[in-house]
Simulated scan of single mutants.
Amino acid sequence: MKEPCFQQIEVDISLKLLKAGKHVLQEKPAAASISEIEKALSGYNSIRANVRGQPIWAVAENYRFEPAFVQSKKLMAEIGDMMSVQVIVEGSMNSSNPYFSSSWRRNFTGGFIFDMGVHFIAGLRMLVGCEVVSASATTCHVDKTLPPPDIISSNFQLENGCSGVFVMVVSSRSPKACGKLIIFWRVVGLKGTIQIERGNQNGRQGYTVLYYTADGQCKSFFYPFSGVTDEFKTFIHDIQEAKKGNGHEVEPRLSYIEGARDVALLEAMMESGSKNGALVHVKKF
Rank of each mutant, 00 (worst) to 15 (best):
V167E: 11
I151C: 01
R106Y: 08
G161Q: 12
D143E: 11
F156I: 04
Q86L: 08
S134D: 12
F69L: 15
S35L: 04
H141K: 14
N155E: 02
I34C: 06
G117D: 02
E38C: 06
A40Q: 02
I151D: 00
S153A: 11
G123W: 07
Q157G: 02
N107P: 07
S42P: 02
P55W: 10
F112H: 13
Q54F: 05
P98G: 09
V59G: 09
Q54L: 08
A60S: 14
I79C: 07
I56M: 15
S96R: 11
C130I: 02
S101H: 06
K39H: 07
S35Y: 01
G111C: 09
V85Q: 02
M83N: 14
A32L: 02
R125Y: 05
R106M: 13
S72W: 03
N94R: 13
R105K: 14
N62Q: 12
P55F: 04
C162W: 02
S153R: 13
W57F: 08
I37A: 08
F114G: 05
P98W: 09
G123Q: 10
A60R: 12
P148A: 14
W104Y: 15
F65C: 07
M82A: 13
K73F: 01
F100S: 08
G123Y: 04
R64S: 12
M82L: 15
K39C: 06
R52F: 01
G117T: 04
F166D: 02
T139G: 07
G91A: 15
A68K: 13
G161T: 03
A137P: 01
R52L: 06
F69T: 06
V89K: 11
G43T: 00
S102Q: 05
